[in-house]
């Protein structure tokens, strides 16, 4: 449904995309995972025909993003990174406007947005600018869906949204997937990635890896430990001269330590005790996508 072949995008001397390729099948919920500045937005703008790639080519439902830009603009539903609706129009007016612009009516495609819009209905006379972040994002999704697009392109839809709304939003995306909609969604949150059918990890304009979330996590090549101590910083410092260490990163209240396979827990504990660090807990864990990402970026 979406095909990106060796796409390069330069802004002057800045290389935003350095030859990106991937493919999204019909009906997939595809995640583009990467930190800010990794080139996600550039890629979305190329796919929506807003930017012309410097090299390579991309197509959506067989339409070339440069040549057939008019056809593409009829079949995609696009939600840009920043909330882009009319703040001074009400919820209902925004929805109606975008429906009319796409030559359809709210009534005709109401079934598509019913689940989402039901939550917004009590506020339908409120101006979009006065909505909360989560509500704004639901409205933006409704507006992007109202013309029954073949492909949904969502650029960082969950950035700046509270955790509850974020979860609700992903539930909606899963439901939409069940109707057969193809969705490409980008996010800087690694835990969002686990909810996709397939993910591409992107960093500095390069794709690091492409696989299902489970396989990506399984690809982690080392043994991983979760180390809980009184102080992450001291622990990291102490691990600097731990011979068996491959990598160590701070993860919330604990440190994720990668080691060679045959290292026993005792070795780690003893090393830390030597540095006078009180160890609360050391346990082996399964790698998450974030661990893989850190490993790939290393």
């Amino acid at each position: 449904m979406i095909k990106v072949e060796n796409v390069i995008k330069n802004y002057g001397s800045v290389e935003a995309l350095k030859g990106v390729s991937f493919e999204v099948e019909k009906g997939q919920l595809y995640g583009l995972i990467g930190p800010d500045g990794s080139g996600k937005t550039s890629l979305f703008r190329i796919l929506t025909s807003l930017l012309i790639p410097t090299g390579g080519k991309a197509s959506v439902k067989g339409f070339d993003t440069v040549k057939d830009y008019k056809s593409i603009r009829k079949i995609v539903g696009y939600m840009p990174e920043h909330f882009s609706l009319y703040m001074d129009l009400t919820v209902e007016e925004n929805l109606q406007f975008f429906a009319t612009v796409f030559n359809t009516t709210v009534e005709e495609n109401y079934h598509l947005i019913e689940d989402i819009y039901k939550m917004l209905e009590p506020f339908k006379d409120r101006r979009a600018g006065a909505l909360s972040g989560g509500m704004k994002q639901k409205l933006a999704l409704s507006c992007a869906l109202i013309h029954k697009p073949d492909v949904l392109l969502l650029d960082e839809p969950t950035t700046g949204v509270d955790p509850v709304s974020r979860k609700e939003f992903w539930d909606m995306l899963r439901k939409l997937k069940d109707t057969g909609l193809t969705t490409l969604v980008s996010t800087p949150f690694m835990d969002d990635a686990e909810l996709c059918d397939e993910v591409a990890l992107i960093q500095n304009g390069n794709i690091l890896t492409i696989d299902t979330p489970a396989n990506v996590a399984a690809k982690y090549p080392h043994k991983l430990w979760k180390v809980e101590t009184e102080n992450n910083y001291k622990t990291l410092k102490a691990l600097d001269n731990f011979e068996e260490k491959i990598s160590a990163f701070s993860f919330g209240h604990s440190v994720h330590l990668a080691t060679n396979d045959n290292v026993p827990e005792k070795a780690i504990r003893e090393h830390l005790l030597k540095s006078n660090i009180k160890v609360d807990k050391i346990e082996p864990i399964k790698a998450s996508i974030e661990d893989v990402f850190m490993e790939l970026m290393r």
Binding site: L50, K70, S84, Y86, F98
Partner: peptide
């Protein structure tokens, strides 16, 4: 405000 981005990606 970014609304132009949406208007451009529409059949308008």
């Amino acid at each position: 405000l970014g609304t132009m981005e949406i208007l451009l990606v529409s059949p308008l």
